[in-house]
Write a protein that binds this DNA or RNA. Structure first.
Length: 506
RNA sequence: CGGGGCGUAGCUCAGCCUGGUAGAGCGCUCGCUUUGGGAGCGAGAAGUCGCAGGUUCGAAUCCUGUCGCCCCGACCA
């Protein structure tokens, strides 16, 4: 019982132990920089040490997603894909390449993406007649196909999603948050009316919000993007925005109402109920591997990753305590427990590696964010119990073997809920409302700036000025916000038309 | 793309200033003892010094270029 020393001394991941002096509270974590010391390095340390991703020698800005990181992505795929299917969408796959002539068709779109498009100029040794863009997003190629398929209003709506990789030639990259190549899903739909396209756009944003909050336990702000921040070629863009541990915002998903812009550029037309040929209304929407970056930063602490049970590749890690011929005496019990948990639908890792001590395994799986650790040793077997330990609160408990599965499931549900509640509380603490630009500047100059709501005159010039002066950008115009009526813009003093949410962003 | 920093064993780094042919700790392999919060002892393997040129009798070390990573800006769904 002497292993109670580490206690539960940490709350929001404030600077905890540094792990160099070998005292008591700092028995683990020597490999990860503390958040307080350097948040960026903390983030990179977690990504690398938890083996989520790794750099690829000689290849700039691209990461290899390692099995443990990819397993998280697979959970995201599984859980989101089910929701997209449930709302009537089907999956398909479109080509990676986009002929230059096609890409040029939508002017605003081209201009928006031109700086980050990668080009293929040769096939083997021969120079291509026409350059091929590697898709930075697939509106163009998918729109081209839709134009081919669509004839009648009876063909509508078209509701297709694809899981794919895209490439954007970014100048500054960070694993998961911004990489040259990344994985995502992109939905592309076609509708008969403007209203239906708008409904779809908003519906998907709702799906994203519910998915991210329920499964990733990440509270998000849903709202509409300002014109300056909207997708190149869209009529309207909506987003969900999450607040990270360092007080900066992360765009976690976007949904675009493309109006008829792409329909006109790519000839997506149909004969309507009124027998008149007309352009369709399209939407597109996506979330990416960036969500993994968000997960790390919303829940992680100085010991590493903290994963919500719904998304964790392993929800429980079983660490058998070796004593004597433990493979004969302890391991069978561990295996039996694993079988029970697996039968109940719990994702379990039984760490029976000989080469590592229990203490080493504890620290290792903590760093990887496994929600619940289950220890079982000779003493426990005698008493018909196990030791359970929570990753998020570090709480430990002796739990009877009898009713163990239900107990574990209870813990998992509780961890999922409390991670969300805690993230929500942190966000509330760091969300402010102001009508004063001076106060706004002061807030943005803080170490963990957070979100600031303010009445706004909706002028792109002023938006640019605020960005220059404070580095803050408009994340979105939240659906849920104080009313703007009767208020004046906090920068210009002109009548406010909307309340905007500002933040420094990733 | 601009400013700054860094590339030496799997990892963290020393060596570079003042050229003489590469080291430590951790990790890894083998053996024994261990194992309830990152185990101990013994033996061992491991590096084209990011890459390419140049100077030199001789380059990890000096010079030039280049690639990659990190930080700060600019740019960016």
């Amino acid at each position: 019982m002497s292993e109670q020393q580490q206690g539960k001394g940490q709350q929001q991941g404030k600077g905890q132990q540094q792990g160099k002096s070998g005292g008591k509270g700092d028995a683990f974590v020597t490999a990860i920089t503390s958040q307080a010391e350097d948040y960026s390095r903390w983030y990179l340390d977690v990504v690398l040490r938890a083996e989520l991703a790794d750099y690829t020698p000689g290849l700039k800005g691209c990461m290899t997603i390692r099995p443990y990181g990819y397993a998280i992505w697979e959970r995201i795929q599984l859980l989101l894909d089910a929701r997209l299917k449930a709302t009537g969408h089907v999956n398909a796959y479109f080509p990676l390449f986009i002929p230059e002539s096609l890409l040029m068709k939508e002017a605003e779109h081209v201009e928006g993406f031109a700086p980050e498009v990668a080009w293929v100029t040769h096939g083997g040794k021969e120079k291509l007649e026409e350059r091929l863009a590697i898709r930075p997003t697939s509106e163009v190629i998918i729109g081209t196909m839709y134009a081919k398929w669509l004839q009648s209003w009876r063909d509508l709506p078209i509701l297709i999603n694809q899981w794919a990789n895209v490439v954007r030639w970014e100048k500054v990259t960070r694993p998961f948050l911004r990489t040259t190549e990344f994985l995502w899903q992109e939905g592309h739909t076609v509708h008969e009316t403007e209203a239906e396209a708008e409904e779809e756009t908003r519906k998907i944003l709702g799906v994203y919000k519910e998915f991210v909050e329920t499964e990733l336990a990440m509270p998000v702000i849903d709202g509409q993007k300002s014109d300056a921040e909207k997708f190149a070629g869209a009529a309207k863009t909506y987003s969900i925005e999450a607040l990270m541990g360092d007080g900066r915002a992360l765009q976690a998903g976007t949904s675009h109402n493309l109006g008829q812009n792409f329909a006109k550029a790519f000839d997506i037309k149909f004969q309507g109920r009124d027998k008149v040929e007309q352009h369709a209304w399209t939407t597109s929407w996506g979330v990416s591997t960036r969500l993994i970056g968000g997960l790390i930063m919303v829940h992680g602490d100085d010991s590493g990753l903290v994963l919500p049970p719904n998304i964790a590749p392993y929800q429980v890690v079983i660490v058998p305590i070796p004593r004597g011929d433990w493979r004969e005496t302890v391991l069978p019990h561990a295996q039996a427990i694993k079988a029970q948990l697996v039968a109940a639908g719990v994702r379990v890792m039984l760490d029976d590696r000989d080469a590592y001590t229990p203490g080493w395994k504890f620290a290792d799986w903590e760093m990887r964010g496994v929600p619940v650790r289950l220890e079982i040793g000779p003493k426990d077997i005698e008493k018909q119990q196990v030791v359970l330990a929570r990753r998020d609160t570090r709480e430990k408990a002796f739990v009877a073997m009898d009713g163990l599965v239900a107990h574990v499931q209870g813990w998992l549900a509780d961890i999922q809920a409390s991670l969300f509640a805690k993230a929500q509380q942190v966000r509330e603490e760091r969300t402010h409302y102001t009508e004063s630009y001076e106060e706004f500047k002061a807030l943005m100059a803080g170490t963990r700036p957070g979100l600031v709501y303010a009445p706004w005159c909706d002028d792109a010039t002023v938006e640019a000025q605020v960005k220059t002066e404070t580095q803050a950008t408009i994340r979105n115009y939240p659906f849920v916000a104080p009313p703007a009526e009767g208020k004046v813009c906090f920068v210009t003093g002109r009548p406010a038309t909307v309340v905007a949410c500002f933040a420094k962003a990733y």
